[in-house]
């Protein structure tokens, strides 16, 4: 019971933070709605764990908790991969800026030498 209360409190904080960030326009309305669905669903699973077992059976997994762990691993791997891609794009942008700056400085130096 205690763990359910603690997790619900954590999810409530996440829910409120999501809408606070949405009001600050840091994230869009659609994104806030999507995360809200995630938090509410997670809370539903915490209070009605038997529900996950039903879903697990549909996918051929014995226990609900196993189903959650498998799903979490896949989702986390996808998120890590997305982060790698975003990091790669950021690195390229940084390279372009560094190159532009270096070439500009070089051209200026050549002009002053003339």
């Amino acid at each position: 019971m205690l763990i359910q209360l603690v997790l619900t409190f954590v999810l409530l904080v996440a829910f409120l933070t999501t809408w606070k960030r949405a009001r600050q326009r840091a994230i869009g309305f659609g994104e806030a709605l999507m995360w809200s669905v995630v938090w509410v669903s997670a809370d539903g699973v915490i209070w009605r764990p038997a529900f996950t077992t039903k879903i697990a059976h549909i996918f051929g997994v014995g226990r609900g908790v196993d189903f959650i762990v498998y799903t979490a691993v896949v989702v986390l791997l996808l998120l890590v991969f997305q982060l790698h891609l975003a990091h790669e794009r950021l690195q390229r942008t940084l390279t372009k800026l560094v190159q532009r700056d270096a070439l500009h400085e070089f051209e200026q130096e050549m002009k002053t030498k003339k």
Binding site: L94, V98, A102
Partner: peptide, 11 residues
């Protein structure tokens, strides 16, 4: 020519 930040040999 100077890169202000290390970007790698390819860059």
């Amino acid at each position: 020519i100077r890169h202000r930040v290390n970007r790698g040999q390819g860059a």
